[in-house]
């Protein structure tokens, strides 16, 4: 999996490309935790090019969500493929995360989250 980082205004955007699995999720975890520690208050993870996530990928997002709440930052996941979305649904976590259908929608959700 390839991880690229870009910024749009105040938002840290992670573009992921490939599969988030046991092999690749530790690197993603390190980068996400770093962003949260550096007090990035708004994080957008674009999953458009992710075809598969396994349990470790799901757990990595859950941990990032827990830590971001503690750090008063906000995470939105955008453009999930249906196979990826179903992993969240099966674990009944689709309601816990903020999921956006497009990057614009995700940016909009993050811009309205100043109070959080």
């Amino acid at each position: 999996m390839k991880i690229s980082l870009r910024r749009k205004n105040e938002v840290h955007i992670f573009d992921l490309d490939g599969e988030v699995d046991f092999h690749t999720s530790p690197e993603l975890r390190a980068q996400l935790l770093k962003a949260i520690e550096q007090q990035s208050s708004r994080i957008l993870i674009n999953l458009k090019k992710v075809s598969y996530i396994d349990s470790s990928g799901l757990a990595t997002f859950v941990e990032a969500l827990q830590k971001s709440k503690r750090a008063n930052s906000r995470i939105v996941l955008a453009q999930l493929e249906s196979a990826v979305r179903s992993v969240f649904e099966i674990a009944r976590l689709d309601g816990v995360f903020s999921l956006a259908d497009s990057e614009d929608e995700a940016l909009d959700m993050l811009s309205r989250s100043d109070t959080r």
């Binding site: 046991f22 999720s25 530790p26 975890r29 349990s55 470790s56 799901l58 757990a59 990595t60 859950v62 941990e63 099966i90 674990a91 009944r92 976590l93």
Partner: peptide
Amino acid sequence: LTDLSDEIIKIIVKVKLEL
């Protein structure tokens, strides 16, 4: 069989037990 951290393993365990 994996090099996953304890924190991640704990979350996976919770998800699997929920399933």
